[in-house]
Design a protein around this nucleic acid. Sequence first.
DNA 1: TATGAATGAGAATTCATTCAT
DNA 2: AATGAATGAATTCTCATTCAT
Lengths: 187, 187, 187, 187
Amino acid sequence: MITNKRDQILIATRDLIFEQGLQSISMAQIAQRAEVGMGTIYNYFASKEELVFHLYDAIKAAMSAYVLEGYDESQPVMARFLHLLTSVAVYGMQHPREFRLIEQLASVPFVQEMADPNAYALTAMMNQLFTEAQSQHLLKDLPPAVITLLISGALNALVEAHATQQVKLTDTLIEQTVAACWDAIKR
Amino acid sequence: MITNKRDQILIATRDLIFEQGLQSISMAQIAQRAEVGMGTIYNYFASKEELVFHLYDAIKAAMSAYVLEGYDESQPVMARFLHLLTSVAVYGMQHPREFRLIEQLASVPFVQEMADPNAYALTAMMNQLFTEAQSQHLLKDLPPAVITLLISGALNALVEAHATQQVKLTDTLIEQTVAACWDAIKR
Amino acid sequence: MITNKRDQILIATRDLIFEQGLQSISMAQIAQRAEVGMGTIYNYFASKEELVFHLYDAIKAAMSAYVLEGYDESQPVMARFLHLLTSVAVYGMQHPREFRLIEQLASVPFVQEMADPNAYALTAMMNQLFTEAQSQHLLKDLPPAVITLLISGALNALVEAHATQQVKLTDTLIEQTVAACWDAIKR
Amino acid sequence: MITNKRDQILIATRDLIFEQGLQSISMAQIAQRAEVGMGTIYNYFASKEELVFHLYDAIKAAMSAYVLEGYDESQPVMARFLHLLTSVAVYGMQHPREFRLIEQLASVPFVQEMADPNAYALTAMMNQLFTEAQSQHLLKDLPPAVITLLISGALNALVEAHATQQVKLTDTLIEQTVAACWDAIKR
DNA sequence: TATGAATGAGAATTCATTCAT
DNA sequence: AATGAATGAATTCTCATTCAT
């Protein structure tokens, strides 16, 4: 066997959620797509919820790692801002189904319950960055939480649109967008 | 009977979706909350999907009407921009469950399928505004679709956070946010 | 509808357990035998366990009522002994499937857990009778619990054999058996 | 390896049935408890039913052998009666889980089907004893089958109660009980 | 028009058994 | 002979929808 069953199952689940959304997919479908018996899924994951959460968790961790690769806390605020936003957008451009999956699953009740809010370094890093930026009076006089919301909201909407092929992301477009985000919040 | 059954059903559905999310609510729950027999729902709506879509459609139309109230196409671009964004945010501040419901339902496959993308004047108006603004060289050199995405994404994230009580919207905060959005896209 | 669905379900369940034993019957079988949709069962009973326990409980209560009909606590010990044992045996003779069902279900873990040990007057009455009999020095010097066990064990085995048609119970045979039981324990 | 796999499997099965009852144990549990691979079980037993039946059969044969040890057919009826009943009770006192297992399995449909009713010398011996006793007019005028039922029922109930620790069997208690059984049936 | 009991297809999950290693 | 991952039929339970009253 070249690919192992566990990975086949995870890939099948990812693709089906991407294509059809979470609520319409059944374990039978996953098994069929993964070319695996239904029981096999339960050898690796205790339940459908565990399977889906594992997928969410693994992808979020992978994206977090990708984005923080080369992130240098000693750089000035703006450089770090550019790094984080650009990396997120590039990750989304290169991994549209993973990105979309995170967005979709993040709002599902059982995923929220299972998720440890402190588990992902990326979120912490963004909050820290904005807090620091504001203490340096580089930003508008808005609560850091609001700034995070605006920036994330804008960026996610863009990447999401790329994932659904409403928009075609390019390096140039990402660069322009990140600049626009900075203009939005800079003092 | 003071309220008619149809409205009782719609209100019950709206509140249940807000409280529990779409996938966990059943027709039996809706009927019970609406104090109506299960069969009665089918006198007004052909299926669960039709009921939910109608709710989405009605709320979106109501929001669209609210936002476009007093919108004057003869005003300069920036005034119109301020009007639209401020109105959207104020609507969301005042009707959090309706706003959130639209956001939630917009990503549900069958709702997307049933929705006519041109049905809502608000979306059309925004697209028109940005197109016009760009032809006047007021905006950065980004595709109008991208501008719409960024602005809507940022604003929706904020109002959504208000609906889930992560953030408390105020008139001042709205004003600041709208200004930030303008800074993001202005040339 | 002449019989109501709830009773059809209970009867079907009783007969299937009698014929095949508890563990081999499925909800689908019950539904089919009761000429009812599977979902209908769940309109009346929350789960398979609740259905089975209800059956146990109802039959045990009915048997208890039958046996205690005309039981006179002011009668002398021996008369009461004869009444109780004879009534149990007669009930078993007339309702073999109900009797057997009680015996079978009594040893099923979840039934034991759900059952209130004090719920059935018959058990209490027997314990009381033997305790009283022994305080009058009418019985051999054995613990009342042991006496109850021996008598119940003997009688149940007999009725059970009648239910499975290994033996044919008659009024005469019952009379003789009850007398033998008395001889076993009398001083 | 000191103990062989086959015995490990049988012991694990016996203990699990004693602890949890037959229907709740799986082959996976048995394998785990026996510290054996699941496939290994199938090297020794063709199916779960065969495994369980073999267990029943082996224990029943062992008990039969124990009880008939020193049984002397030339002794008078009463001595033989005392021997048989006392031996059964003592066996049950010393091997509660084996005794209980026999009782539990005896009522399971597939065990009944697989069992050869004439296979166990003990049952045959009891029937023969009672038939002979009755031809000597030592017993009440009850069918031998009924006498066997009453005596076995009483005795089994007692030993079963010992196995579940509702009652504590002792040599004295056994002696008294066997005497009571004799009183029940003697003319 | 209003009702809610009845329905059965479809969902998640279990588990005895097989078979490649 | 020993293993345990893989299998899929069978099980319990849910729920959108229908229809007799």
